[in-house]
Design a protein around this nucleic acid. Sequence first.
DNA 1: ATGTTTACTTGTAAATTGCAAGTGAAATAA
DNA 2: TTATTTCACTTGCAATTTACAAGTAAACAT
Lengths: 138, 138
Amino acid sequence: MKELKQRSTCPISTSLDVLGDKWTLLIVRDLVFAGKSTYGQFLQSEEKMATNILADRLAVLEAQGIITKAVAADKKSKFTYRLTDKGVDIVPLLVELTLWGAKHCPTIANPRLLEELQAGKDAAVEKYQRLAREQALA
Amino acid sequence: MKELKQRSTCPISTSLDVLGDKWTLLIVRDLVFAGKSTYGQFLQSEEKMATNILADRLAVLEAQGIITKAVAADKKSKFTYRLTDKGVDIVPLLVELTLWGAKHCPTIANPRLLEELQAGKDAAVEKYQRLAREQALA
DNA sequence: ATGTTTACTTGTAAATTGCAAGTGAAATAA
DNA sequence: TTATTTCACTTGCAATTTACAAGTAAACAT
């Protein structure tokens, strides 16, 4: 069981103890917005995360109750990672990260998602949370 | 000028290139919620960040146009750090981090702020953004 | 003139990351 | 049945980053 040290009792600091690095939230992003769910799919992302880092972060996310790991329906040699309720609650954070990055950093990707978010933040949050929950049941 | 490498064109990834670590957002937190503005004040925070890390992160935040650095009104040997508009736009992110941490991680701190956020997220965001803007003018 | 405050910088050990290669179980192909 | 490929990791090691302790330099206070 991967355990993390809590630096203080501040909720922001505590959240960053878990989510505050360059990779963890990209995995959650792939689960929420890209519909990905397997180790191999996460590896294929544009940012090319190292295999050991991915394995480590998946273990942390599972230990923290943010994702679950289950044998895939089709193959026994494959695992399916899904968001728990705790994980689904990260969606609003991803939305804010997206809006901030889109507004303030030079970037060109995913104009469709961006338009959707800018048109209605709360509606988009609910939509992707619902999608993630549905996938978790399947 | 501190420069960062952009890993992809995804806005989430790009935001994490700047904000994705354990310390940067704690500085922004101190600027927004604790009314702090000097190197010495940031050092005094509960989480005890190392002096070289603090100096590095302040330089990055300034280079990225998230904070400004100015000689303090009272002493020439002191500097005052304030949020720019780009920095003020991080407030919604901090609010989401707070709510997530408070809901899902064992923590006890700052019940007053927490109640305020849970009572009305948007109102609280606007309030702290206004406060930060006012301080930047003073 | 002397000591203190403020904002850093420097040196070094420890921890983390990034890269390349390797492992082993399960699925598929011959 | 055997061989090959797929999939999900693990391992080893160099490079980068972090943490800790100490030191520096300009401004300010006495």
